[in-house]
Structure formats: structure tokens, C-alpha cells
């Protein structure tokens, strides 16, 4: 347990009569980029706010570096960089002032990448925060987070206001810190981002974790989309186990295939003279939707 960077065990949180989280378990190890996906209101931000000791869990244990997130919050936060999703800054302070303030509040004092990041993110730090767009406000939080040393980066939908170019810069930053062995906890509903960056992920739905694992593990548990062309008769597919949603046109077939029945279907296709075979694993989006349409 203790070697895990982030661990949550049976975390439950109610707001009055609303059950925000019910028995959430999470384990994230060092060096991992961990994706946390779910629609609005599923409990992503509540989970993160509990991890940061801003909300107190009703029951369960949550730890960062093996320390309790509530009682050791101040200590823990020296090694944590946090980027909130909805960045609401002080309108009377300039962007540069806020970046410095954030770094100073972390009390590590070091901001070696500040200048570099301001250039990379193409950010003007001399304007008052009241005049920044959402994307620019997010840049403030991102620059403050990545310009200092941290062991964990907790990012709550950090890119929802960024343009595609800035999104690339963001991914670069995440990969860089991960390569240094740092842990990244990325909550997002931009699935392509999670698909590209994350080694493992969890899907949360109505306050419960409904799926956890690497993308490949998740794909294995479901069906591949198969397209096949053959010289022989493909009609026999109808009777085979593991074949779903079959559609046939002369010499071509499309269907979904359960992974554990792959061998049987391949044997059949070999007998019918298959000329072309394309098998696509489900995208994260399809996986995600399958959890919500059920």
C-alpha cells in the first residue's frame, strides 16, 4: 500500500441527501499518468477535492505518499501541483503576480521553468486576471503548476479552455514530468487526451468507479469491430458463438467479435478463403459510451 503515490479506499461523500461518492477505490503508483474520466457531475472534482484535503470524506481512507490527505494536507501539498478546472482568479492581480503567489504559497521557492513555460504557452503575464479569457486563466494555473518541482500533479480538466496548439504544449509538459518519474492524475472528459497520455485509467459514473485498468485491458474485455472479405460463403458466421451485430453483403461481412471467441471465428474464416481482414479495437470513446448506455 504505502509505495502507492495515491491511494483511496472506500471513499464515501454525501452532500445532504445527494450521494456524491460511494465507495471509491483508487491506486496510482509513481511514474504513472492516470486518467480519470466521467461526465459532468459524476464526482471527478469531488474526488480531487478530497485528495487535496479541501473536502473531508465521510468514510474511507485517502492517502498521498502514505500520509492522510486531510490531517497532513499542508505537508503533502509541498510536493503536489494542482490545476483546477474552473480557474477563478483575483481580478485585481496580474497573471504574473498570481503565478509568483502560487509558487510562493507552495513554499518550495523554486521556479526554474517559469520563463520557459510563459514563452511556450505564449502567455502575457502583465495583464490583470479580470481581463483574461478562460484559456488564459488556465494557463496561469498550468504555468504555476509545471514551473515548480512536485511529485504529484493533480489536474482537474486542465485543458477545457485551451486551443489545440496549447493542448500540445500541455501534453509535452505532462510527458516530461512523467519521464522524470512523477505521478500525474488527470481528470478529463477529452477522451483523446486520456487515450494518448494515460497508462491506466478509471471511469467514474454517479459516484462509483465502474471500470479500472489500462486501455488495453479494457479493450480486451470487450468486442473488436471486424471487417472481412472472402471468396467463400460467410453466411455460416450467423451460427458462430461470439459474433454480434452481423451484417452481410456479397462477399463482405461486418460484425462485433467477443475477444475470447477469436480462435473459433478465425478457423471458420480460413475455410472460406478470407482475402482481407481488418480488426479494430474499440476506441476509448466507444468503451466510455458502453458504460453509459448499459
Amino acid at each position: 500500500m504505502s509505495e502507492m503515490t495515491i491511494s483511496m479506499n472506500g471513499i464515501t461523500k454525501d452532500f445532504g441527501r445527494v450521494h456524491a461518492l460511494t465507495g471509491v477505490d483508487l491506486e496510482v503508483g509513481p511514474g504513472e499518468i492516470y486518467g480519470f474520466i466521467g461526465p459532468n457531475g459524476a464526482g471527478k472534482s469531488t474526488t480531487i477535492r478530497i485528495l487535496l484535503g479541501i473536502l473531508k470524506a465521510d468514510s474511507g481512507q485517502a492517502q498521498l505518499f502514505g500520509k492522510d490527505v486531510w490531517s497532513d494536507a499542508v505537508d503533502i501539498h509541498q510536493k503536489v501541483s494542482y490545476v483546477p478546472g474552473d480557474v477563478n482568479l483575483w481580478p485585481s492581480l496580474t497573471g504574473g503576480e498570481v503565478i509568483d503567489l502560487f509558487v510562493r504559497l507552495k513554499k518550495t521557492g523554486d521556479q526554474r521553468y517559469r520563463k520557459e513555460l510563459i514563452e511556450k504557452f505564449d502567455f502575457d503575464p502583465t495583464r490583470k486576471c479580470g481581463t483574461y479569457s478562460k484559456g488564459n486563466r488556465q494557463k496561469v494555473a498550468l504555468i504555476a503548476a509545471f514551473s515548480t518541482d512536485a511529485d504529484v500533479y493533480i489536474l482537474d480538466e486542465p485543458t477545457s479552455g485551451l486551443d489545440p496548439l496549447m493542448e500540445m504544449v500541455f501534453r509535452e509538459c505532462v510527458r516530461k514530468v512523467a519521464a522524470e518519474g512523477k505521478t500525474v492524475f488527470l481528470s478529463s472528459h477529452i477522451l483523446s487526451e486520456v487515450e494518448q497520455l494515460c497508462t491506466r485509467l478509471s471511469i467514474i459514473r454517479q459516484g462509483k468507479i465502474v471500470d479500472t485498468g489500462s486501455l488495453r485491458e479494457m479493450q480486451h474485455l470487450t468486442r473488436n469491430q471486424v471487417h472481412v472479405e472472402a471468396t467463400g460463403d460467410l453466411g455460416g458466421l450467423k451460427t458462430l458463438e461470439g459474433v454480434h451485430d452481423l451484417s452481410l453483403h456479397d462477399g463482405e461481412a461486418e460484425f462485433h467479435l467477443d475477444n475470447d471467441h477469436t480462435a473459433g471465428v478465425m478457423a471458420f474464416l480460413a475455410t472460406q478463403g478470407a482475402t482481407r481482414l481488418v480488426s479494430t479495437p474499440p476506441t476509448l470513446e466507444e468503451l466510455f459510451m458502453s458504460h453509459y448506455e448499459a
Partner: peptide, 13 residues
């Protein structure tokens, strides 16, 4: 205004 989140998210008691 949601600004205590950042402050408490740092090393601030």
C-alpha cells in the same frame, strides 16, 4: 468565489 481551493491546494494550513 472558489479561490480558497488554490490557496489551500498549496502548502497552506
Amino acid at each position: 468565489q472558489g479561490r480558497l481551493d488554490y490557496v489551500l491546494g498549496k502548502s497552506v494550513s
